[in-house]
């Protein structure tokens, strides 16, 4: 079974030495993200996120199905993360690595269970028809920070996506095609984002947005998910080494600043994209509906 090549002892020692001297390999501050870039596809709900050399593509797609019998008033929302050998030969199709399992678990907690998406709004006719929304996360290039990048990608894609409108007449529902009726945005309740803290030297040093080499050297990680209003959605800690509880409070403080910055950045890009698409004032109409 192919495995990710381990980092050499020289690199490990050097990175640790550098951290003690307050230096990161790429010259970043300890609490700085790599340059974030976000672009949208021609279709709604396709987002390409670049975080340094890491690149993630998220795509939202929708289908109409029957709601789950125990949740008659809810639509279905799924996040699918499957690694492919594109990002690393160590990723095998159909054999999830630990990183893959952790990523899907964190996204599940951060986005789905924190009710970022109002699934009730995906219901068409209670108990009979609903929208099934799925978010596919494709890891294209892997240089660490997959969780943070994937979360940004999914949240931005959800905000960018437009679902087709439906016409309900009694028991009969007609899904209107894009040509017939302008599609409508999803109802998003809040925007959780993840910030991963990697810690070293028994928690004395922590890094925000570690790259792959830094991830390979770390003792453990703490992933904080919160929205820009300062509400914490989940905190997860992996790796055996211990962390001071107060350090986690500090992480949350740092994360809030980062989340605010990133939310503003995503919003800026969404606005730019909306402006680009705004031909004939259709978007103006839509945003009026949105504000209601």
């Amino acid at each position: 079974m192919p495995r990710e090549a381990e980092i050499s002892v020289n690199e490990r020692e050097f990175i640790r030495q550098a951290l003690q001297e307050n230096i990161r390999l790429d010259g970043r501050a300890f609490d700085a993200f790599r340059p974030l870039e976000l672009s949208f596809g021609e279709e709604y709900g396709v987002v390409d996120v670049q975080l340094g050399k890491t690149r993630v593509i998220a795509r939202i797609s929708v289908d109409v199905t029957t709601p789950l019998p125990e949740r008659k008033f809810d639509g279905i929302f799924q996040i699918i993360t499957e690694f492919s050998p594109m990002a690393s030969p160590a990723f095998e199709v159909g054999r999830p690595t630990d990183a893959e399992v952790i990523l899907s678990r964190i996204l599940e907690k951060a986005i789905r269970r924190s009710n970022a998406l109002d699934t009730e709004s995906l219901c068409i006719i209670a108990g009979i028809k609903c929208f099934a929304l799925r978010a596919d996360v494709h890891i294209v290039d892997h240089d660490g920070g997959l969780i943070d990048a994937s979360c940004i990608a999914v949240m931005a894609a959800l905000q960018h996506f437009r679902r087709p409108d439906v016409l309900v007449e009694g028991e009969k529902a007609t899904v209107l095609s894009v040509r017939e009726r302008e599609p409508i945005p999803l109802s998003i309740l809040h925007q959780p984002l993840c910030v991963t803290f990697s810690y070293y030297e028994d928690g004395e040093i922590f890094l925000v947005d570690a790259n792959l080499a830094e991830e390979q050297v770390r003792q453990g990680e703490v992933i904080v998910t919160m929205n820009r209003h300062g509400e914490v959605c989940q905190v997860a800690k992996y790796g055996g080494a211990t962390v001071d509880p107060l350090a986690i409070l500090n992480y949350i403080n740092v994360a809030l600043g980062k989340v605010k910055d990133m939310s503003a950045f995503i919003q800026k890009r969404l606005n730019e994209d909306a402006k680009k698409r705004d031909v004939g004032g259709l978007m103006a109409e839509l945003s009026a509906e949105n504000a209601r």
Binding site: R59, S61, I80, E82, S84, P85, M86, V93, R134, D136, H138
Partner: peptide, 11 residues
Amino acid sequence: EIHVRPAAGIG
């Protein structure tokens, strides 16, 4: 070895 991955969903 060739993997074709669709835009949405798994193979």
